[in-house]
C-alpha cells in the first residue's frame, strides 16, 4: 500500500500489538466442531477465525468429475459477508477463486487420494472473521479437518505468512501490518517431508530477504505443526481411554 506509512515496528523490534518480530498471534485450534461433517476444525490466529469441514470420500455430485485411479479433491475457500470491515459480497470473488486453487494444490501432495478411486473428497472453508493471514489459517484448519475425517495423509500441512513491515521481516502478519507491508509471503509446508506445498509472494524482496523470510516461516510452521498435532492428540487420546 502507498501513502503515509505509520510506524508499526519500534526500534527495539516490538510490533503494534506488542508481539516480537518472530512471534505468532495467540492461537487456538479445535477439531470435531461440526456433527454432520466427516471431519471439521476451528482455527484462530488473533482476530482471524476460520472453520473447515471435510465431506467424503463420497460419490461426486457429477459423474464426469471422477478419476479412475484416485479421488478428486474439491476445495472452496469462502469469506462470510460479516468477516470483513466492509460487508463482503458473498458471491465468490476472483481472489477467493485463486485462493481455493492454491489451497487445494497445497493439500494435493499430502492427501493419499490414490486410496479412494472414483470418489471425491470435499473441503469447505469458511472465513468467519478476517484479520490477515486467512489463507494460511484456512490451510491449517483444512489440514486438521482432513485428519479429523480419518483420511490417510502423508503429513499435516502447516502454514504461516511472513511479511516485510517498515523494513523488518515479521512472522504471521495481521491485517494492519499487511495494509502497510512491503511484502506478504504465505508459505505452507509438510514439515516432516520437507515439502513446500504453497508459496506466494505479494510484494518485492531481495534474494537475501527471501532466504531470511523462508527461515522465519519455517520457524512459525514448526510451532503451528506442533499445535496441530497436540490438538489432534487431545481429542483422540481421550476417546481411547
Amino acid at each position: 500500500m502507498r501513502g503515509e506509512k505509520p510506524k508499526l515496528v519500534s526500534e527495539d523490534g516490538v510490533r503494534h500489538d506488542g508481539r516480537r518480530l518472530d512471534e505468532l498471534r495467540p492461537t487456538r485450534m479445535e477439531v470435531g466442531i461440526l456433527s454432520n461433517a466427516s471431519g471439521s476444525a476451528y482455527v484462530e490466529f488473533g482476530k482471524t477465525r476460520v472453520i473447515a469441514a471435510v465431506y467424503g470420500p463420497r460419490e461426486p455430485p457429477q459423474r464426469y468429475m471422477v478419476l479412475p485411479h484416485r479421488a478428486v479433491l474439491r476445495c472452496r475457500y469462502h469469506m462470510a459477508p460479516f468477516s470483513t470491515d466492509e460487508r463482503k459480497n458473498p458471491a465468490p470473488s476472483r481472489r477467493e477463486i485463486e485462493i481455493s486453487k492454491v489451497i487445494r494444490e497445497a493439500l494435493e501432495p499430502v492427501v493419499m487420494s490414490e486410496a479412494f478411486p472414483r470418489t471425491s473428497i470435499d473441503i469447505f472453508i469458511e472465513v468467519i472473521s478476517a484479520d490477515g493471514g486467512t489463507r494460511t489459517a484456512a490451510l491449517n484448519a483444512a489440514s486438521l479437518a482432513l485428519a479429523d475425517a480419518g483420511i490417510p495423509m502423508r503429513d499435516l500441512v502447516a502454514a504461516v505468512a511472513v511479511g516485510k513491515v517498515n523494513g523488518y521481516l515479521v512472522l504471521d502478519i495481521d491485517q494492519v501490518e499487511d495494509n502497510y507491508s512491503e511484502a506478504d509471503m504465505p508459505v505452507a509446508m509438510a514439515p516432516s517431508l520437507n515439502m513446500v506445498t504453497l508459496l506466494q509472494l505479494n510484494g518485492v524482496l531481495t534474494p537475501r530477504d527471501f532466504s531470511q523470510a523462508m527461515n522465519l516461516a519455517l520457524k512459525g510452521i514448526n510451532e503451528i505443526y506442533k499445535l496441530q498435532k497436540e490438538t489432534l492428540r487431545n481429542k483422540y487420546l481421550v476417546r481411547v481411554e
Binding site: M195, V196, N202, V204
Partner: peptide, 14 residues
C-alpha cells in the same frame, strides 16, 4: 524477487 506463485498439484523441497 517481484512476486512468487507455486502452481500445480506437486511440491518443491526447501
Amino acid at each position: 524477487i517481484a512476486g512468487l506463485q507455486k502452481s500445480g498439484d506437486g511440491y518443491l523441497t526447501f
